[in-house]
Nucleic acid binder design. Structure first.
Lengths: 158, 158
DNA sequence: CCAGTTTACTTGCTTGCGCAACAAAGCACT
DNA sequence: AGTGCTTTGTTGCGCAAGCAAGTAAACTGG
């Protein structure tokens, strides 16, 4: 009786192997490079930049802690501490959530928005030099949807 | 007098923006997912798996600490501690480097190799399900070379 | 309207990692 | 051989982030 065929039989093909190894390297190297760029060029960590960015794009420039954590892919505890840091720097403010007094809204202050605007060019340059310039000849739209599928994460269990 | 034209003028195009955001998400999500897969499925962290893998592929199954650190993209101090952990688990051994008594070789033990073999299928499944299955219709070879260009990192300065 | 449960966040503890300071071995030039 | 300089690795310290436990507010069923 023939059993169900697995997705692929044996080990990886040469092309798959090469792609996976290169991706692994990118995942470990690129965040460090871009974080270093941001710290050197704008005095802000990549994590903090992402938080400010997400807030700036939210209606009213505020977000619930848990939504923000999900958007930035941080644990709630991690976001709690990150926002505390940003608050002590005056970039963000925490206010009780009106319709649910358990919740808190992280609000981007004007200072915070100015800081984001200040850091934006650095991020832009870093993005181009480190990534986009090296993706010449690749279909970015197709790549984006593939990446989206990767990050989507259905079937969380192995 | 006309100044030098920057690589690209203004902000990112829609496709660039989408690709960058998706890549950012992949970089933050995927390592956690695959690490979780490895821990649950094989009781080993992704970092440790990578170390054992690199050692297993080296001639004589041993490597200098600094080479190993570079290969795994870890700081030397980080690798020092990682190897100490692995050594205490019996997966790796540290022996003085013959031709340069300052150096140490991390050597993969038989136990370590067995552990790697044991973890390999888990890694394979995780790799396929999380990544390769979602890259259908993408030229993997082209993608690999693009990733290699990203990870290569000439001009370290911003 | 009052337990018991669920949800939203914070805080204590631990881990992994990087940087800077250190020890030890090699090298270079006299 | 001897004195400095370089290279290789390890250790002290600090930081960011996750998990688990705690607190407070909101729902839910009697």
């Amino acid at each position: 009786m023939s059993r169900v065929t697995p997705d692929q039989p044996g080990p990886l093909s040469a092309a798959e192997e090469a792609a996976i190894r290169a991706l692994a390297r990118v995942m470990s190297v690129l965040p460090k490079l871009m974080d270093a760029d941001m710290r050197r060029g704008a005095g802000i960590s990549l994590t903090d930049y992402g938080i400010l960015m997400h807030l700036s794009e939210a209606p009213g420039r505020h977000m619930r802690m848990s939504d923000l954590a999900a958007a930035c892919d941080l644990s709630l505890s991690g976001m709690s501490r990150a926002v505390a840091r940003l608050e002590s720097d005056g970039l963000v403010l925490r206010v009780r959530c009106g319709e649910d007094a358990r919740g808190w809204n992280a609000v981007l202050t004007d200072t915070g928005f100015a800081r984001l605007e200040d850091a934006y060019p650095t991020n832009l340059v870093s993005t181009r030099r480190r990534v986009l310039d090296r993706f010449e000849g690749i279909d970015l739209a197709a790549l984006a949807t593939a990446f989206d599928r990767v990050a989507a994460d259905p079937d969380s269990d192995l």
